[in-house]
Amino acid sequence: MSRNDGQSTRLRRRPSRTVPASIVGILLLAAGVALVWLAVARLFDGTWSTLLQGPRDWLTRLAWNDPDVWGVGIAAVVVGLILLMCALIPGKFSALTVRNASGDGADEERPAPERETVMTRRAVAHLAKAQCVQIDGVSSASATATTKRVHLSVKTSLRDTGDLRTRVTDGVRDRLNAIGLDPVPRVTATVESKS
């Protein structure tokens, strides 16, 4: 858990849940500051802030089977479930694994190090797009990549797109294979004629 141990962490990782953690952290901070402020104000003034009058009256007239208590209970269950889902749903990997070169530089005196080679999803999409626009007949292209699939949206000026989709998917798949992505993601494409 510590990040002061001077060790590297895996580059191919799941999302780190920064957004929900930041939101909950800021809410906790705000709640803590509010409590401290109320307590300090009470110590200096000798009376509780008038801001507490409303919640105090609300609590005093509240019964256990009141609709407000049901509402608070349901809200707590929903918030609890959301936090649990944020923590437990693993999310997509940030990068794709690249096959290491065959020669690892190891010998009897020097054992092979633990190796990890990755390419980010954005880099794979960039590469697929760059390869795609090299193919004859492609006017422009955009690409999206996940760890399992690369999808290309191709625009062409050809009236008859013919085998362009096959040429695009084959060309991009060959390039991804040559780079050494392991496993090679499934390549799909949609071709749109501009005319």
């Binding site: 080679t117 390419m119 954005r122 590469l127």
Partner: peptide, 10 residues
């Protein structure tokens, strides 16, 4: 080298 991690960007 004990460990080597490499991220390739394009």
């Amino acid at each position: 080298l004990h460990r080597r991690r490499l991220q390739i960007d394009i």
